Simulated assay, not measured.
Amino acid sequence: MTDTVLRTVVRRETHSPRTVAMLVVVLLTLLVLAYAVVEIVLALLGRQPLLVSPGAALNAVVEAPTALQPVAFIVGGIVLALVGLIVLILALKPGRLSRHEMAWGDRAVVVDNGVVASALAQHLSNESGIARDDIVVGVAHRTVDVTVRPPVGIPVDEAQLRRIVDEEISTYKLSPAVRTQLRVQRPDTKES
């Protein structure tokens, strides 16, 4: 595989498509159009409108500049601008899947964050002697959060645990890089 093909595959595996956001916008647009069609058909059949007849809606739009205060237009424009900005951000900002790229020799491997968390917790358990059940690891896009809950009476060297975690994470060569946070939580202390 060429480098560009490999980069494309890795990007597709680590970023989510914007299909859901696009689908929501399309469905909302279709609902508005369907409502307009229903109102037009009801008006053509001479029936009562669901909310407002097309003629009355058109008259309200034509008379709006003289009937409404300028403040209403400003507020309406701000609301429409915010909705447009949200849709634009959803369209342009890449979504992230819970995966990281991991360097493996001269190749790249896409690895799930849960796999990284499990491997790190097991390694920390093996190196520190703390039971695997007393270690909780969470991996996010830019951070690795490690919580160690040693049993009462077991001494723990927090600096050594941090060194073990940092060294192991550095061997994974994750992209994007992550920073680690370590907490030692005793059963008799509450987290604030």
Rank of each mutant, 00 (worst) to 15 (best):
M1F: 07
D3I: 11
T4L: 13
R7M: 15
V9K: 13
V9F: 13
V10Y: 02
R12K: 15
T14H: 08
T14A: 03
H15D: 01
S16Y: 07
P17M: 00
R18H: 11
T19G: 08
V26F: 13
L27F: 10
T29N: 06
T29G: 13
V32H: 04
L33G: 14
A34F: 10
A34K: 06
Y35P: 03
V37K: 04
V37N: 10
V41D: 15
L42A: 02
L42D: 09
A43T: 00
L44A: 12
L44E: 07
L45N: 04
L45P: 00
G46V: 01
P49G: 02
L51I: 06
P54C: 14
P54K: 14
G55D: 05
A57H: 03
A60Y: 02
A60H: 11
V62I: 09
E63I: 08
P65R: 12
P70M: 15
F73Q: 05
I74G: 09
I74P: 01
V75Y: 09
G77W: 15
L80S: 15
L80M: 12
L82R: 05
G84N: 05
V87Q: 00
L88C: 00
I89E: 00
A91N: 01
P94L: 10
L97P: 00
H100N: 02
G105D: 13
G105Q: 03
V111D: 03
D112M: 00
D112K: 11
G114N: 14
V115P: 02
V116I: 12
S118Q: 00
Q122I: 05
L124H: 01
S125D: 00
S125M: 07
N126Y: 02
E127W: 00
D134N: 02
I135F: 05
V137Q: 03
G138I: 09
V139A: 06
V139D: 04
A140R: 11
R142P: 03
R142L: 12
V146M: 04
T147E: 10
T147G: 05
R149H: 12
V152S: 05
V152W: 04
G153V: 02
P155C: 10
D157V: 12
E158K: 14
R163A: 10
R163Y: 04
V165M: 01
V165A: 05
E167T: 06
I169L: 15
I169G: 00
T171S: 14
K173D: 15
L174S: 08
L174R: 11
P176T: 09
T180P: 14
L182D: 08
R186T: 08
R186Y: 14
P187D: 10
P187R: 01
D188P: 07
T189E: 15
E191V: 15
